[in-house]
Design a binder for these strands. Sequence first.
DNA 1: TCCCAATATCAGCATTCGTGAATACTTGCC
DNA 2: GGCAAGTATTCACGAATGCTGATATTGGGA
Lengths: 126, 126
Amino acid sequence: MEDDFYCLHSQLCKALANDKRQMILAALRDGERSVLDLVDVTGIRQANLSQHLSLMRTRGVVVARREGTRVYYSISNQKLIQAFDLITEVMEESLEGRVRVAGSIGDASALSQSGVNEEASDESRS
Amino acid sequence: MEDDFYCLHSQLCKALANDKRQMILAALRDGERSVLDLVDVTGIRQANLSQHLSLMRTRGVVVARREGTRVYYSISNQKLIQAFDLITEVMEESLEGRVRVAGSIGDASALSQSGVNEEASDESRS
DNA sequence: TCCCAATATCAGCATTCGTGAATACTTGCC
DNA sequence: GGCAAGTATTCACGAATGCTGATATTGGGA
């Protein structure tokens, strides 16, 4: 299908694919916050925070509203929070699954010697 | 909150944050496919495809099943498809929004000269 | 055993990303 | 205007990522 679609789609995903930006989004989850707030909550330095916010702003993930000398940021679309939560669920289920697999190896034998399913033990967070 | 959480979360997001991987996931949407299939459908070279699949495998995004000389890949968790679709919706709504904003500028004046809301016209796909 | 098809991995290179430091803008106030 | 607080931008550089070509591994026949 169209090539631009996947590019735009991944651009949006990239805007979420960073631990600090995840922290920021989590901090914005319950409503808007000023940059100063975010510095406090996340512990990220102002300049760096501003860079991440700028990135997410140009990607349409967050929106900004100025009030006096402060700028308040908020998440642009609640569906992003739904997506965030879905990813969280996948993550948790995936972790459970790996523990289970590591405990009872048996029917994975068809793949176990083929280099196809070696990630269960040591690569789980690399 | 916990720091590892956001790291893991972003790891999973990173596994989705790439246009070729998005193509691959879209191709796997309706069921499993062999690597050869995927080469045909996506046009990605075999070596590169294999690397992307390997990455997604170690991140728990896809699972592999060997049958003879072929390996069939499939998406590990249907929630990833839901997340994919949510992102798509956000993307589309965001694009609509920008077109609208670009058409009728007026109440954005509070931010327009502050460098806070400059992305509407030319950065929409950078 | 030798060969072939299918998949995986490696080495090297180019590009992108993340960060801190320094600096520039904006706004409100004196 | 000058100043201070709050926020944004630029630069430089190390680290991570993506791609290609070459090579290795695996499984199934002849």
